[in-house]
């Protein structure tokens, strides 16, 4: 039997305090990757940073999106070490991976103020679950109300 693959792995190049790290999530794709990226972008820490007066001119470029690379980068003009960068690569050629056809996504999270990116990841996952729950509840509630048009479709 092959060795069981961990669901999440921290890739090489992470800060010792995990303020910046790349997480490799096994057996996941853009389905969860993009939703997770969006939720990480909603991280409250960034909002607290933006509130500091010297950042009034802070206008980040909007999310760059392409099939394999998604990132959110504040402009270079901001003279601050603070960044929150979320990168997602589905086909990152990482040497320590046992198989060439990888079924993984890499999520890079860099935090302000040396906060833990792992905490941000756990928090984002929790928020994403709350979001799904409220969507499901709202859907089922509307279905129960039964005030939609019904019709018969022949196959």
């Amino acid at each position: 039997m092959a060795e069981s693959i961990p669901k999440i792995k921290i890739l090489q190049g992470a800060a010792p305090d995990l303020s910046a790290a790349t997480y490799q999530i096994h057996d996941e794709s853009h389905t969860i990757g993009n939703a997770l990226r969006w939720m990480l972008m909603k991280n409250r820490i960034l909002w607290l940073q933006v509130k500091i007066p010297s950042f009034k001119s802070f206008v980040p470029v909007s999310a760059v999106s392409s099939p394999t690379f998604l990132s959110f980068l504040p402009p270079k003009a901001v003279d601050s070490p603070c960044r929150l960068i979320i990168k997602m690569m589905s086909d990152h050629p990482f040497p320590s991976v046992p198989h060439p056809s990888e079924n993984v996504i890499n999520v890079r999270i860099q935090m302000y103020d040396d906060l833990s990116s792992l905490d941000a990841l756990v928090e984002a996952l929790g928020n994403l679950d709350n979001l799904c729950e409220s969507i499901e509840d709202t859907y089922l509630e509307d279905l129960r109300k039964n005030n939609h048009e019904t019709w018969r479709e022949e196959s």
């Binding site: 909603k42 991280n43 409250r44 960034l46 909002w47 999310a63």
Partner: peptide, 21 residues
């Protein structure tokens, strides 16, 4: 692109808020 995330508009809170959502 959507712009409803923190840092896009100065002094506006667009961070995650379940109640608002």
């Amino acid at each position: 692109s959507s712009t409803d995330f923190p840092g896009h508009y100065p002094n506006e809170d667009h961070s995650w808020n379940l109640q608002k959502f």
